[in-house]
Amino acid sequence: MAVVALKDGYTGEVRDRVENFHGNWVTYLHWEDHLSFCAALAFPFPPDMPFGALLEEVLPTYYGMHPDWANIDWSAVRWTLDGQDFTPDPAKALKDQGFHHKSLLRFWTPGLKGPADSCS
C-alpha cells in the first residue's frame, strides 16, 4: 500500500540506508532461550569482518557473564541467518556468507535454557 498524503508521490528519506553507517553494516545477534538478554543486540560491523571475530571476540564480550556461557557445546549450536538455517565459516567474511545490512543472526545452544529452564 502507498501512504495517503497531501502531496502526490510523497516519499520519505530512508534514514537507515547503508551509506549512513560509515562503511559498517548493522548486524543483529540473538542468543535464543536466554531472555535475561532482553532483545537481540545490534552492532555496526565491517562487512569484511571474519565470522571468527564475531565468535571469539564479540559474543563472549557481551554474553560471557551468563552462567550458561561456559557450558556451550559449540559443535551442537544451531544458527539461522535471516530465518534460514546457516552454517557459519569462521574464516570467511560476513559479506561472503550471506550477511547483508540489518541481517539477523539467531543461535540456539541445546540443553541450555537459563536458570531453572526459565529461558532467561
Binding site: 538478554f37 532482553c38 545490534a42 557473564m65
Partner: peptide, 11 residues
C-alpha cells in the same frame, strides 16, 4: 556484578 547490558538492543 550487577547486570548491565553493554551492547545496544535491536529496536
Amino acid at each position: 556484578n550487577r547486570f548491565y547490558n553493554n551492547a545496544l538492543p535491536q529496536l
